[in-house]
């Protein structure tokens, strides 16, 4: 049985993040908390960000949703940890462009999140993939 089409979307690294999420949990103490959901499908995420001196010191998430939204949250937190706020926002922009299937004009390293590029071929799932990134943007912009 060939699942070529599905394998474009559900790469091994994505399923690994879904099964073994990184940075799942809450940050105790002084952290930014952002709740965001996808009202059309019920995916929801709570993101905790610890930002100090313009840098993302720590990022954790909890929530419920499909493999794409949850793996994306795991990958996103991994990608932005240790980055400056400006870098994190740039990565989010880069990620959104990747979702739209656009030619990327920067060579930012999104780490494992790069594996989600196949989502661009599944328009109905783009919102799943961008949920965590949008939550991160909201948290940083409202700080």
């Amino acid at each position: 049985m060939s699942f070529n089409n599905l394998e474009t979307l559900y790469r091994q690294v994505i399923m690994d993040h879904y099964k073994n999420p990184r940075n799942r949990g809450v940050i105790e103490g002084d952290a930014l908390t952002v709740d965001m959901n996808n009202p059309t499908c019920g995916d929801r995420i709570q993101l905790h960000l610890q930002v100090e001196e313009g840098k993302v010191k720590d990022a954790k998430f909890q929530g419920e949703g499909c493999s794409i939204s949850m793996s994306s949250a795991s990958m996103m937190t991994q990608a932005i940890k240790g980055k400056t706020v400006t870098e994190a926002l740039e990565m989010s922009k880069h990620f959104s462009e990747m979702m739209l299937g656009e030619e990327l004009d920067s060579d930012l390293d999104l780490g494992d999140a790069q594996a989600l590029s196949g989502v661009s071929q599944f328009p109905a799932r783009i919102k799943c993939a961008t949920l965590a990134w949008k939550a991160m943007e909201k948290g940083i912009n409202h700080k």
């Binding site: 699942f3 089409n5 599905l6 979307l9 559900y10 499908c41 995916d43 949703g65 499909c66 493999s67 794409i68 599944f122 109905a124 799932r125 799943c128």
Partner: peptide, 12 residues
Amino acid sequence: VHPHDVATALDS
């Protein structure tokens, strides 16, 4: 399997 993933798989 999350229902969104089921729906995407069935759509394929």
